[in-house]
Design a protein around this nucleic acid. Structure first.
Lengths: 123, 123, 123, 123
DNA sequence: GTGGTCTAGACCACG
DNA sequence: GTGGTCTAGACCACT
């Protein structure tokens, strides 16, 4: 369900966050669905529970999942993230540097659009 | 010439790298131009020379600048970064996560393209 | 495991790089094997961790080793260096001057080949 | 007569040394021939006289050239370098690291020999 | 003057 | 525990 890449700089817990989000976007996980417990997912992914817990905390903070004490963890009713100004700006910052690299590689606006489109479709 | 953000978690040396690239893209720095010496830029930015040196070394590795022993550092004749497959893949990975966030916010492909276009134009 | 020569003018971090490569070539270190942590190797070699870190980063850039965040550093699955044109040209440049010296000493092609063969076998 | 490469790590004075030696090996400069004065060569190469002086000093130390006070500098009668143990060992050391890189690139002994042969022929 | 290397410490995020 | 980053100094070779 989630593929981890241990080499590379991306923190494991962030990969879990994105993995869950990907499952939501692809409708493999729907609002109300249960997701594995911290312990179970940790076992499946062969990592320590602390790392999974960190990911779940962040997902809950973002409103993607909800934990119900004694019952488990579930996909939120509206797992969409609100596009508020602050969040958009953060995304803008994250996009800035790779787009700059593409520009340095000689990519014009058209090529850039195609490039991001192809990534969008893969999700 | 270069603005540093000490708060964020982006390493200072990376901010220097992007700052120089930005100056190159905006044609404030042209091929053959000298850039500030390691020590001078360190003084200007109020950081240690080692941090600037690290940034310059990475820029040289990428072919953006060239250092001439005992003389200084200069913008390369062709400060373009080679668009080899490996590098493109790295950029792809970097773009993936913010694009995913936009998708989670409900952005469709058209909005995404507009968004990245506006960032591209700012550079 | 690694012998350092502090007198010579060869940077310590380069000696570490070559030392690791030597261990890989001689199969003392195999793909997947862990190599000493930055701190441990620094203690062993009686140098500062920063110097070891610099060596490890360059080795990773060359694809010889891989670091896993929070876990350690390991020999890559395929610790071969890619023989792209750029790298071959760099090696060519490095070989040029010592070969010229041999020629000045009266070495002909046959002797030269024997000489480099004997070095190759030592590795 | 001598081509300098300002970018790249090789010191200018070493490039001069090798340049003179190359001219000797190719018989463009023969024993007894005069070579340019420090000042003239410095002007030609557009560098400072100190750098040329450093190169000439080293060449004289190696017995390749001879300075006659008030008359100028000349190619020695026997500009061959003696192949003593010490010097051979130094060359061996210099060859070691690039040969190791070739081995890491997958070069076998046969390929290595061809590689050095081609360099030898270029000189 | 220049950049390159190294030391001896420190703090941080990650697992 | 791990590696990554940064500081505040120092010494070196080169031009």
């Amino acid at each position: 369900m989630i593929n981890l890449e241990f080499k590379g700089n991306k923190p494991i817990y962030e990969q879990i966050i994105e993995g869950i989000k990907l499952n939501v976007m692809r409708r493999y996980l729907k609002p109300g669905d249960a997701i594995p417990s911290v312990r179970k997912l940790a076992l499946d992914l062969k990592i320590t529970p602390g790392t999974v817990a960190k990911a779940y905390q962040e997902l809950e903070r973002q409103g993607v999942i909800e934990t119900i004490r004694g019952k488990g963890t579930f996909i939120a009713e509206k797992p969409l993230i609100k596009a508020d100004e602050e969040r958009l700006d953060a995304v803008r910052q994250k996009l800035k540097s790779p787009i700059m690299e593409l520009k340095m590689m000689g990519y014009d606006k058209k090529l850039l659009k195609e490039f991001v489109s192809s990534i969008y479709d893969e999700l």
